[in-house]
């Protein structure tokens, strides 16, 4: 369009228009002020707040993660400790039981030994007493027999020797 070119060169497209400049400036400034109050303030505040909110949420999430990790670690430690503790207790219990068993067994052994020993003593005593009684009895019997023998055969010396020999024999046989 050559005509447009001519008009442009003639200046109508680029011609200054103070009125329009004035109105543009006034309009723009008023719009700027109104929008600043009405729109940009709340919108930018909201955006900033949301940005901060998101940031703090992320921070909180990180913190919570760290905390939970710490708690997990602590729990693991506690668990390991408890494990060790229970192991120790079981081992101690076993040891104790073993010792107790050994003690009891030993004591029982000793008791039994003692009882056996006392039983033997008693048996020995009883035996000795029985032997002594038997000897007395035998002596009585012998005396009584001797009496009879003597009464019938008053060869005292001979008889006595015979009796003695017999007693001697008896005792050696018994022993």
């Amino acid at each position: 369009m050559l005509t447009s070119g001519i008009i442009l060169l003639a200046g109508s497209l680029l011609s200054p228009n103070p009125g329009l400049i004035f109105w543009t400036a006034i309009t723009f400034v008023i719009v700027l002020l109104i929008l600043k109050k009405v729109a940009w303030g709340p919108i930018l505040n909201a955006l900033e707040e949301r940005e901060k909110g998101i940031q703090s949420s992320i921070d909180r999430a990180h913190k919570a993660k760290d905390e939970s990790e710490a708690i997990l670690r602590k729990n693991k430690e506690l668990l390991a400790k408890a494990d060790a503790e229970s192991d120790r207790i079981i081992r101690e219990g076993k040891d104790f039981a073993e010792k107790l068993r050994a003690d009891i067994a030993e004591k029982t052994q000793a008791e039994a030994q003692k009882m056996i020993a006392s039983a033997k003593d008693e048996i020995e005593q009883e035996k000795r007493r029985a032997l002594a009684e038997l000897r007395n009895e035998v002596a009585d019997l012998a005396v009584r027999g001797a009496e009879k023998i003597i009464k019938s055969n008053l060869d005292a010396d001979t008889q006595k020797r015979i009796v003695d020999t017999m007693i001697q024999d008896l005792s050696t046989n018994r022993n």
Partner: peptide
């Protein structure tokens, strides 16, 4: 502009950041 952004700004005033 004023109408559109008063509406938008107004809705932001009623908006919590959640």
């Amino acid at each position: 502009l004023v109408i559109v952004f008063s509406v938008v700004g107004g809705s932001y005033k009623n908006l919590t950041n959640r």
